[in-house]
Design a protein around this nucleic acid. Structure first.
Lengths: 257, 257
DNA sequence: CGTTTAATTGAAAGCAGTCAAACTATGTGG
DNA sequence: CCACATAGTTTGACTGCTTTCAATTAAACG
């Protein structure tokens, strides 16, 4: 059940990760794979904290993260920020904007990144004319929605410890599914304040919870690196089940811990 | 800029509301309109509290609410419930399941309802073969995702009063956009406990907040009926802006209050 | 009408927030 | 190479919004 054949492209081609992500959910015929890789695009290198999209924008491109991390966010009237999603390499940053005219949230880089700008129309056309690509993009969109639902649950019905443990598990599995993790751990590209904005907490409390998880032997930390000392217990602490990520088992090794 | 021509169908045909909803975001050519209305479907009448979908199901139909209300929900390991969305008449209940094989959440009826079951494949085929319909369905999906993002903000970064005011505003505008509201108010088809599960609060506190909003002259209530006494103030109290609903202004009258 | 479900109210407890300060790491320029 | 600046982490004390628990009232239902 390997998805071989395009792994080479993943590493070099700016859209390789995108292709790989599309094929996570359904196989593409060879000619569709070609069409994806041949999408017109312009590659930019951007600094950390750059905005890719601002709420209210009328975007003309669909951006793909060739490398680096980003997050979606919204700011309330009182000025507090809520992070809505974390984008990892290969993510198409604004499928949203491909079919809606005004962006309803902002996207900001977490790290320095390479971003491929694909003209909106080119991707649109592919989605509407190639059933396999259309299916794959729709599935991507639906999985993003599923993750959003889980975030609503996380923020609405879990306590601080559960929220943090849950989001750590989510990262672990998502990164793993794209081969971006190290040995039983990963580089968390966020400050504790950003983690707080993603979980509806304050940075002070995130700090306390992280120390608690560490004290209980679930994780250990060095700088921004998270190591799971007890993956099973971390999942339990976070009420985490991978089902909502819709990643088939053979796409990741995480369950072997 | 009227979307006339299919208003008659909306009232009678089980899929009329769906068609109307599709056309909210982009116009369909007449033959596509025909194809939507000619979708094979079976109509069922179900009691309140019936499940339309259960988490883990592998559904074969896409259900459309011809009448009645429903909500999406997930239950945590500790047994608390989070409501993720409220479906109103005309909503396609599981676009999710149309392109994903396993449902990641449950859908339960709020009221007695008429539900049209459309075979998954029939709708899929239409989406992938008719660009206008594909575009409309994708837009619908994206708007749902946008609403989810706003819910994350609501639950993550707003206090109890703001959350309740916000969700009331959202109902008002969504119902209005489908012509389901009365005079400066609407029938809220939820108990206070369900409202609590939608906002990440407890029913006790929802009650206190509702009474607070009433005491401050923002709303008045009779049974489940909500009347906005001061629409402007209610929006302010809820930090509400309709942008995330992606409803064009001429599709609703709400802003005239 | 009795029974069940939902709404309401009060008192007490607790989780997380706020405020403030100290500490650490990283980076810069002299 | 060190002093200084900046950004992020850590810690403590106190406050407060919401929850919890419990009891009462009101509405819906057979």
């Amino acid at each position: 059940m390997k998805r071989g054949g395009n792994n080479v492209a993943s590493q070099d081609h700016p859209l390789g990760y995108l292709l790989r992500q599309l094929e996570l959910y359904c196989d593409l015929p060879p000619e569709d794979r070609q069409l994806v890789l041949e999408l017109p695009h312009r590659l930019r290198r951007l600094d950390a904290a750059s905005y890719l999209v601002r709420e209210g924008d009328k975007p003309t491109n669909c951006m793909v993260l060739a490398s680096g991390y980003a997050f979606r966010q919204k700011v309330t009237g009182k000025g507090s920020r809520q992070i809505l999603a974390v984008c990892i390499p290969g993510d198409a940053v604004d499928l949203q904007n491909m079919f809606l005219d005004v962006s309803d949230h902002s996207v900001q880089l977490l790290t320095q990144a390479r971003v491929a700008d694909v003209p909106r129309e080119a991707l649109q056309k592919l989605v509407l004319s190639r059933p396999a690509i259309g299916t794959a993009i729709i599935q991507l969109t639906l999985v993003e929605a599923s993750i959003l639902r889980e975030w609503v649950v996380n923020v609405g019905r879990r306590d601080a410890r559960e929220r943090i443990a849950h989001i750590l598990c989510e990262f672990a599995v998502r990164l793993e599914s794209r081969g971006l993790t190290g040995d039983q751990g990963f580089e968390l590209p966020m400050t504790q304040e950003q983690l707080a904005d993603a979980t509806g907490l304050t940075s002070v409390h995130v700090n306390r919870v992280l120390k608690g998880l560490e004290a209980d032997g679930l994780i250990s930390r060095k700088r921004r690196h998270i190591h799971y000392d007890n993956w099973r217990a971390l999942q339990d602490a976070g009420d985490f089940s991978r089902r909502y990520l819709h990643i088939s088992d053979h796409d990741t090794l995480a369950q072997s811990y």
